[in-house]
Design a binder for these strands. Structure first.
Lengths: 242, 242
DNA sequence: CTAATAGTGTCTGTGAGACATTATAGC
DNA sequence: GCTATAATGTCTCACAGACACTATTAG
């Protein structure tokens, strides 16, 4: 028997008699809030549950960790995302983990909630679709997914005030006006143009390209995301308390 | 048979045949990074493991969720804290949830990491003790607890730059100089006195009391935490990138 | 008095908001 | 030319840093 670095000598003896099925353990799942901007509105990817429990209700994509396939929690989140969108490397961030005795009728359950940002020009799996987040409260959600969505939206909104995160929702090339509109859609209110441009340009989170966009009137400079862009934290937040 | 709001009609049928032990599920635990300031240094509460696996190694307090006693993940964290300190209502915040196939020799495991802030003048359970966090890297830690501690310290440091969180480490009454020293200990460098006082006083996160502290030279005004203090977010971060 | 610590006055710098202005394209 | 959109100039304001200064206490 090989002994990993993690195991002390006594562990080897201990593990011979250990059986996880002897204990009461909670269910553990990963749920995803996958955001995109569609037609100037913030949307989230939703599915309708095709099996019990909560058959037929709306839900965030997610489900059990596959102890064989998933090497980590993050890997499980990536797998869930890939199953719905075939996107392998998006922005992915853990939001919060929620667990209690009543959120799932099968028993005590825990879910690790992640959010992802993707460009909406991405093919979706058959059973997935985009839903405007401001219509979420009218729906019949499975489990506590309405609250999970609210947590994810709050995180996205609050980080939009002091990071460049929304760049993760943009296509490869974009104009500053388009980027500003995405910020405005997420925050739910307008931003001052000059301040916005100063902020993102001075920080170097977007870089000019050799391309410009000709769309009607004066053509606009096209930018792309700088390498550090999504991790960048501005020294000051935008005004406006949420 | 009563049907909870959470269960659809089909769920009632489904649950008759559902048995969690039919599935492979990860172990799920809660771990605590409990911080305090002792002798002008940031300390964390540690225990030595008294059972396998990882018998004898240093560990953050924590362990399995008790599906009978704990109504939620947060409740489990509060229970773990209370078992070591008998403190019922400290500042408690979820940091991150870590899970993978190899961090625990018993198998695929997930832990929800929390941090708590307490005044160090708190009696501890027998097997718990304060450890300076800057000595943590020399120790023989159980599982991935050294990394968990690093995550919690990073969160504490980064929130110290833009919130009033360290107030949670203070006793009932404290002077502004004492509070500033705590900020400095956490950040690892000095802060400018006038700026610091303006910041906390203008924000109203501390309130003057009718008391003052006579300690050697000129006596100092004693303050207490304002109700909102720990949730307060300053519009600008302190300088200095971590 | 002196020394030590508490606490203030005030100048500078940075970066956000406001808003007027100029630039460039299609028609 | 006119109009729409892109992009800039520049003033003000809030708040952090720097640092000199004053205030209060024990001895």
């Amino acid at each position: 028997m090989t002994m990993s670095k993690l195991e002390t000598t006594s562990d080897v003896e201990f593990l011979k008699t250990y059986n996880i099925h002897d204990y009461d353990v909670p269910l553990t799942t990963v749920d995803m809030a996958i955001f995109s901007i569609v037609e100037q509105r913030l949307h989230v990817l939703v599915v309708t549950r095709e099996e019990s429990p909560q058959l037929g209700r709306w839900a965030l994509p997610g489900g059990f960790i596959d102890l064989k396939k998933d090497v980590s929690l993050d890997a499980a989140a990536h797998r869930k995302l890939f199953e719905k969108t075939a996107i392998a490397s998006p922005y992915l961030e853990q939001v919060q983990t929620v667990g209690d005795a009543t959120r799932d009728p099968r028993g005590w359950s825990v879910t690790a909630l992640y959010f992802a940002l993707i460009d909406h020009a991405t093919p979706l799996a058959m059973n997935a679709q985009w839903l405007p987040v401001d219509e979420a409260s009218n729906l019949d959600w499975a489990f506590d997914h309405q609250m999970l969505l609210r947590l994810a939206v709050e995180r996205l909104r609050s980080k939009t005030l002091y990071t460049a995160l929304p760049i993760g929702l943009m296509p490869e090339l974009f104009t500053l006006t388009e980027l500003q509109q995405v910020f405005e859609v997420i925050l739910g209110h307008g931003l001052e143009k000059k301040s916005f441009r100063r902020r993102v340009l001075d920080a170097g989170v977007v870089l000019p390209t050799e391309f410009s966009k000709k769309s009607g009137k004066r053509s606009a400079q096209l930018y792309r995301a700088a390498a550090l862009s999504l991790d960048f934290v501005f020294p000051r937040a935008l005004d406006v308390l949420l």
